[in-house]
């Protein structure tokens, strides 16, 4: 069997070229590939196109890659939780393409499923529809949207095995499974890497066929954006 296990994030991302298109899993800061992002910061590749639902915050997540000017273009559904992002957008240093969240998720899913285009009602009659083919099905108008694929997909899972099978935890799953499927090369970082045969096949979220490189990450910060606490015992 091909060895998918790499030593660490540095080794996993070392052949990502300048101007590559990357997918990065996560919703907000939940389920982001922290180790891979750190490795990209060190490696210095530039001109990257990043497909990710959000763009991190000023001092964490993709926000760090913006600070180092490694990102040329963001493809996201909701951005601007950070000041540096806004500055680069307004100065024209950064290109941004905003996509409805469900369309973004489905375009990535389609990329991983080998479906070049599909029709969705999201965005009909809005500026999202500009230049797109529309078609009527059962009396309702739909927009044609194309698949999204990436040179490298960077995903984060809770547990993984050496065959690349992945299990996510909580709402940290979000965009990670579809991105894992849509990458030409998919790199998975996991909190716990276990030997083959350890994970229950019934529980696998991402089958190992989609994962090319896997490593156990270190020092997960798992930063929380909005720590909201209940005072009441329910």
């Amino acid at each position: 069997m091909v060895n998918k296990v790499v030593k660490n994030a540095d080794e996993a991302v070392k052949d990502i070229p300048h101007r590559a298109t990357l997918m990065l899993g996560g919703f907000g800061l939940c389920g982001i590939p922290e180790n891979c992002i750190s490795a990209i910061l060190k490696s210095g590749m530039t001109g990257l196109t990043c497909i990710s639902n959000n763009a991190g915050v000023d001092d964490f997540g993709i926000g760090l890659m913006l600070k180092t000017r490694q990102v040329k273009k963001m493809i996201s559904s909701y951005v601007g939780e950070n000041a540096e992002f806004e500055r680069q957008l307004l100065s024209g240093e950064l290109e941004v393409e905003l996509i409805p969240q469900g369309t973004l998720a489905e375009r990535i899913r389609a990329g991983g499923a080998g479906i070049p285009a599909f029709f969705t009602p999201a965005g009909v009659g809005t500026e999202v529809a500009k230049g797109k083919e529309t078609r009527e099905f059962n009396g309702k108008i739909y927009l044609m949207e194309h698949w999204l694929r990436a040179d490298f997909s960077l995903v984060k899972a809770w547990k993984g095995d050496t065959a690349g099978n992945l299990i996510y935890r909580g709402t940290a799953r979000n965009f990670n499974p579809m991105m894992a499927e849509a990458g030409t090369i998919t790199i998975a970082e996991v909190e716990e890497l276990v030997p083959i045969g350890t994970l229950d096949p019934n529980s696998i979220h991402t089958p190992g066929i989609y994962v090319h490189r896997i490593f156990q990450g270190v020092n997960y910060e798992k930063r929380i954006e909005q720590r909201t606490i209940s005072n009441l015992k329910i």
């Binding site: 996201s76 559904s77 909701y78 951005v79 601007g80 939780e81 905003l98 409805p100 969240q101 469900g102 369309t103 969705t120 999201a122 965005g123 809005t126 999202v128």
Partner: peptide, 8 residues
């Protein structure tokens, strides 16, 4: 900031 999931 983006439409997030609102359009969907």
């Amino acid at each position: 900031k983006g439409m997030g999931g609102a359009m969907d």
